[in-house]
Design a protein around this nucleic acid. Structure first.
Lengths: 264, 264
DNA sequence: CGATGCGTTCGACTCAGCGGGACGGCGGTC
DNA sequence: GACCGCCGTCCCGCTGAGTCGAACGCATCG
């Protein structure tokens, strides 16, 4: 490591560049160079140079208000293999599901110990659900998350069960044993439910999407106010949609491939 | 420049990294390291190291089939400022427009001499239109493009009018004078039309979206088979939707800011 | 009118990044 | 089964791109 290099950070330029991008939180607008330097632990001079090089590539945009995530990154992100093939296969089924139930529907994949929302079709009602395409949630307390966790590799399950299960609402399942039993039930029934476990007032049903190999590659869900959405009533609908997506994936010949890019 | 550095390429690591990402075309699946080296002009050794560093950040994913664009890039791309604020404001209006017309609707921004599609709601019919979110088209031969061009800075207009106007179909407008007059008409009427100018069998109407400042920041369009879509009949509908989005942008307090990140 | 915080610039040090080249494995061809 | 071509990977010596601290000019504020 470079003697002048500040501690803790990545040693490669690539690592620092993505560190800068990772400094942007979804609620952030434009960030100043100094703010970026503070968040990443890099020197102002380094941030200045890197940000300008990234702006040259369109990865960020510099304006009077500060630095923002660039449009080019949106464009490149649309090429991402996993979300793209899934979205293509799932789109019509999700549209039908939304149409049939009138509620917000999601498609999500698992990434580490979290769900990553890949697609969202909103209910025609006033927005109930504050999820976001590209947003993340923990695996253990959402319907999609529990479905994905139920079919996740053993080490991920172990990590989640061991890790602290934060109580996000009064109804969050924080007992590892209880959660484990629920995962088993999900594997039996093919659907996972959530009643105000991640957010008060919100209920959710989800079902797994299978690739040709039999591996679970995603999960579909219906989400809405718990006064309206009865998980057990909507279970057959999500299940049907999930099976439809699985079938479309098979005919598209999509292979899951065990991609776990980030070790650890 | 590094004496060993191969000629032509960017000098910064950042430039090389985005060069690698730019090597992926929308139709590409996984690319081999050697293929990436060929496309970027970098040595195999450099590609090998960079790709592995990028994989550590999730920017790409390495599998047995080769290298793909990573899920993390999708996630980061969703944070991009311009698409995000536009999508948020436009979503309900686009849904209404699709509902009312039954045709495919688009939201697009201009980037250089091209349109970049930011959102797409497909017609419920069989897929007619092969556009793609994150995809690009020339400004001069599409309805959205011409609308955006009609309100673009003078230098962009000059560049497009001067540049070669490729004849993509028998109906493509390739005479600069004709195109210029059409842009003036678009500025008067507030709608742009396209009848099989970019793709045979496809017609399109578009209308501009204004930010608070009065600047045009995007365009909405209705697209479909030219046998069904009559641009002049659907013009009021797109116009209404575009004005609605403009109003939503105003109430959201979105400022356009002249971001032209990539010089030239 | 000092204090604070911003973006920018300069300069000297140095190691991360560079490409050439070698290597082993794999699949097809003669 | 020898050969060839292409693949991913690894090693190595060189060097300049990347690094940070520090200083600067400029707003804004109390």
């Amino acid at each position: 490591m470079r003697s002048t290099q500040r501690d803790g950070g990545p040693t490669s330029v690539i690592g620092r560049a993505f560190g800068l991008l990772a400094a942007f939180r979804p609620t952030d607008g434009a960030l100043s160079l100094s703010e970026l330097a503070r968040r990443t632990g890099l020197s102002k001079a380094t941030v200045h140079r890197l940000v300008h090089q990234m702006a040259e590539q369109g990865a960020v945009e510099i304006s009077a208000e500060g630095v923002r995530v660039g449009t080019r990154l949106f464009e490149l992100g649309q090429l991402a293999a996993r979300p793209r093939s899934l979205r293509d296969a799932a789109a019509p089924h999700l549209a039908d599901l939304r149409e049939a139930t009138g509620e917000t529907v999601h498609l999500a994949v698992s990434d580490g110990a979290e769900v990553l929302y890949v697609q969202k079709l909103e209910s025609r009602r006033v927005p109930d659900v504050d999820s976001r395409v590209g947003g993340r949630m923990p695996l253990y307390c959402t319907a999609v998350g529990k479905v994905l966790l139920a079919h996740a590799p053993a080490d991920v399950v172990r990590e989640v069960l061991a890790g602290p299960l934060e109580r996000r609402t009064p109804r969050t399942v924080v007992a590892p044993g209880l959660l484990e039993r629920e995962l088993a039930r999900i594997r039996e029934t093919g659907v996972g439910e959530e009643r105000e476990e991640s957010t008060v007032g919100v209920a959710c049903v989800a079902s797994p999407v299978f690739a040709t190999s039999g591996k679970v590659v995603a999960a579909v869900s219906i989400t809405g106010r718990s006064t309206r959405v009865d998980p057990s009533r909507l279970a057959p609908a999500v299940r049907t949609a999930a099976l439809g997506i699985s079938r479309s994936l098979r005919s598209a010949g999509w292979l899951p491939e065990d991609v776990r890019s980030r070790p650890g």
